[in-house]
């Protein structure tokens, strides 16, 4: 798996990337919470927050095509949920609520995207644990993040092997059971791997907490 498969663009070198991660977390949290606390249809403030987020994203040099791609996956769900408000009133009212819901979701989504796209995940985690995240939780997050890459490679190898063994037209049921076995086998291999990793960790002095260099 390519190294930027999970948090793309986080390794750039712009003004936003160079800001301290703690500050970036506080900024993003302030924007998200501020937008949530604004009253319905308070457009000037909503507009300001949206502008702020867009300025941040363009300063971080995140390509527009990437944003459009992410928004295309995100917006339909939010739009439909928001539209259910006027829909439930027979399209006679509720448009302001719907628009506020969309703006809030959009600003929160883009602010979160800005935070992740400007901060490598390990530094994000370190900053979060400085801000009070439980140590065990951040250790678990770091471990999981590391092994997602390994398991995706494993899954890709297993799929290739499966394709190499089976060809020709198969029924939906056969494809379904084959996929079930894929998941089951991935689970078995991963748990065996976890046992080996645990042994390796203990032999290197694992005492139950993650130690970092900074």
């Amino acid at each position: 798996m390519p190294g930027d498969f999970l948090d793309r663009y986080s390794l750039g070198n712009t003004v936003c990337h160079r800001l301290p991660p703690t500050l970036k977390i506080v900024l993003a949290a302030a924007v998200i919470a501020g937008c949530a606390l604004l009253p319905v249809a308070y457009w000037p403030a909503h507009g300001c927050l949206a502008c702020l987020v867009f300025v941040g994203l363009s300063l971080a040099e995140i390509p527009l095509s990437y944003l459009v791609h992410r928004l295309a996956l995100f917006l339909p769900l939010v739009l439909v949920t928001a539209l259910s408000v006027p829909l439930s009133r027979g399209f006679a009212g509720g448009w302001e609520i719907a628009a506020t819901v969309v703006i809030r979701s959009l600003v929160a989504f883009l602010a979160a995207l800005w935070l992740v796209s400007t901060t490598p995940f390990d530094r994000l985690l370190a900053a979060m644990s400085r801000l009070g995240m439980p140590r065990l939780f951040s250790a678990l997050l770091a471990f999981t993040y590391r092994y997602i890459y390994v398991l995706f490679d494993e899954l890709a190898r297993m799929k290739t092997a499966q394709r190499a063994r089976t060809f020709g037209k198969r029924s939906a049921w056969q494809r379904w059971t084959a996929t079930t076995r894929l998941v089951g086998l991935l689970l078995i291999r991963a748990l065996n791997r976890a046992v080996r990793i645990h042994g390796a960790m203990v032999s290197r002095g694992w005492r139950g907490d993650m130690r970092t260099l900074d």
């Binding site: 250790a139 471990f143 092994y147 398991l151 689970l187 046992v195």
Partner: peptide
């Protein structure tokens, strides 16, 4: 105790990967 991180973390990674299947 000591097995918490490898066991639970690996299970989380499995679920993360399996959700993409």
């Amino acid at each position: 105790s000591l097995r918490t991180v490898p066991l639970t973390g690996m299970m989380a990674a499995v679920i993360f990967a399996a959700q993409m299947v």
